[in-house]
Design a protein around this nucleic acid. Structure first.
Lengths: 154, 154
DNA sequence: CTACTATTGCAACTTGAATGTTTTTACGGC
DNA sequence: GCCGTAAAAACATTCAAGTTGCAATAGTAG
């Protein structure tokens, strides 16, 4: 990464944040930069740990995750293990409400992003309209390959 | 319901519980009977409220839900709203690990059971094996029809 | 540069879930 | 039917993720 990349990035984020009517504060930019490094959704605890090492407060990180979620920069998902996870939304998907599905290992807790077409919904006529429009989040739980093939915890 | 139904039912449950090597205690039977009345998964809080009215302890209800889950009578699912929900597994599905998918309204929190074929998984070659085997739980979040068509909370 | 208000930092609180300990109870054997 | 033993119940208590209240600080519009 060129030396100027980080700075350029921060300026980018600053502009985008302000375009949404929010103040471009240092912790907010730090949160977006932390999210940018991730390959898969991270818990608030993960992000708070990262960012408190840089001196930012847990509650500030948390509130920013929520604010940035509301502003559409971030997706906040519950993968089914009672932890909120956050991921930066791709620019192209900020208007498109349907995100890719996620896979959570019921044994080790590892998370994986699945391709958007991994799951096809064949909604019957009685299904919720949102399902027919594909305007939903899909979450799949099972055993990952590393954890073997025994039955899913129920 | 005939007057004898409740009694007959309790005896049924008693036998089934003992067949799994567990003691057929009064609270356990009460838990199964409470679950039997449900049409959709209920939270621990719901069930505890019901059952504490009959004099059973919250923690006892909770531990029994977990025990009965481990014994295969009950499915414990996280619908994506940070609450565990429990439902009685149909007898036929007790061996079959793939349950029906659930739909959670991101606005009002209502839960709906979807037919087993509402979702088709088209796993790519890189997807987890469990997904290819269909040995997974599927959870869908969106707006229910009553809550309208605005975008999903992210 | 100033004033105004959003946001931060810190501590405290809430709530669902889980656990520790003592007492009670189911149930196999006598 | 009664007994002994281990399982389960009851009760309080703890735990952890998430959330909020409030005084101090700092972006930003004018």
């Amino acid at each position: 990464m060129p030396a100027s990349r980080n700075r350029k990035n921060a300026d980018d984020f600053r502009d985008q944040i302000r375009a949404k009517g929010l103040r471009a504060t240092a912790p907010r930019i730090a949160v977006l930069q932390a999210l940018e490094k991730l390959e898969k959704p991270a818990t608030h605890a993960d992000l708070a740990a990262d960012l408190s090492a840089e001196g930012w407060d847990r509650a500030t990180v948390y509130r920013n995750l929520v604010d940035l979620t509301e502003a559409g920069f971030v997706a906040r998902v519950d993968m089914g293990d009672h932890l909120w996870r956050f991921e930066l939304k791709a620019k192209k998907s900020r208007e498109d409400s349907s995100e890719h599905p996620h896979f959570l290992c019921s044994t080790c807790g590892e998370v994986e992003c699945l391709p958007k077409d991994a799951v096809r919904v064949t909604a019957s006529s009685r299904a919720p309209r949102a399902l027919k429009r594909n305007d939903v989040q899909i979450q799949i739980t099972g055993r990952c390959d590393r954890c073997g093939t025994a039955p899913v915890r129920q």
